[in-house]
């Protein structure tokens, strides 16, 4: 995003809306730090600019910069996956897709959430660790279009420095891998240069309980008391 200096009257109305805190006042005009801007469009969509000085320049839609909006503005679709958002259907439709079966856990590591943003290179250390861990990486996630092939854990050089509001690594493990994966991931995540929100998807047991909660507690891993729950109302139902 950019601010037209000819139109800007430095009223500062847009400044507080920036999730990356990268709009600042200069000499009589306000400008957006292009290195930090993730092209989320919040400043523009807020509709607070009295002179319509905020705009998305053409270069924001050209690669490699174009991925900023794709991973930051939920209204912009990913050409590689033909859908919006930063993740996949994950457990939201698990009742009809059967993506995570009993005996398996899904995991999602969302880099830059909440509110800090991430460089695509922030994913690399963790991805390299995951590749060594015998986990099943989710290739339908839009992140995969920007990784080196064959998979080394590196982001393609032209995208490494692109900053996004958040990007997600999704993968699946077998139940028996839980402790090993958690123990190996914890120190790697501690070294990441941004924040990472960690999610775990699990099937309910036949009796309606959620055994993974006790397993996590035994491992000393705190799970929040709130969660997203697929209510099992999709049809046709996969693995009741």
């Amino acid at each position: 995003m950019k601010i037209d200096p000819e139109k800007c009257i430095a009223c500062l109305e847009c400044v507080d809306f920036c999730p990356m805190n990268c709009i600042a006042e200069g000499d009589d005009v306000v400008s957006i730090d292009q290195e930090e801007c993730v092209e989320c469009g919040v400043c523009l969509h807020a509709g607070v600019c009295p002179t319509d000085a905020i705009y998305m320049p053409e270069e924001s839609m050209q690669y490699p910069r174009a991925i900023r909006a794709q991973f930051s503005d939920p209204g912009v679709w990913h050409p590689s996956t033909n859908q919006g958002g930063r993740g996949t259907e994950e457990m939201k439709t698990n009742d009809v897709t059967g993506r995570f079966r009993r005996g398996e856990y899904g995991m999602a590591l969302e880099f830059g959430r909440p509110g800090t943003g991430a460089r695509m290179s922030d994913l690399e250390k963790v991805l390299q660790a995951l590749i060594k861990m015998d986990v099943e990486l989710e290739h339908d996630n839009a992140v995969f279009a920007f990784l080196e092939e064959p998979l080394t854990g590196k982001v393609k050089p032209e995208f490494r420095n692109e900053k996004v509001l958040s990007a997600i690594l999704e993968f699946k493990i077998r139940e028996e891998q839980l402790e090993q994966v958690i123990r190996q991931l914890q120190p790697v995540l501690a070294e990441v240069d941004t924040v990472v929100s960690w999610g775990l998807a699990s099937r309910f047991a036949e009796d309606g309980t959620l055994p993974v909660r006790a397993r996590l507690e035994a491992l000393g891993v705190h799970a929040r008391p709130n969660a997203k729950i697929n209510m099992g109302m999709g049809r046709p139902l996969c693995e009741p």
Binding site: D95, T194, V195, S197, W198, A223, M231, G234
Partner: peptide, 17 residues
């Protein structure tokens, strides 16, 4: 009489807190 199917738990925020 609904049977919840799958839960997505939050294991919190890691990294540069």
């Amino acid at each position: 009489d609904l049977k919840p199917h799958t839960a997505f738990l939050s294991l919190g925020v890691h990294g540069k807190r």
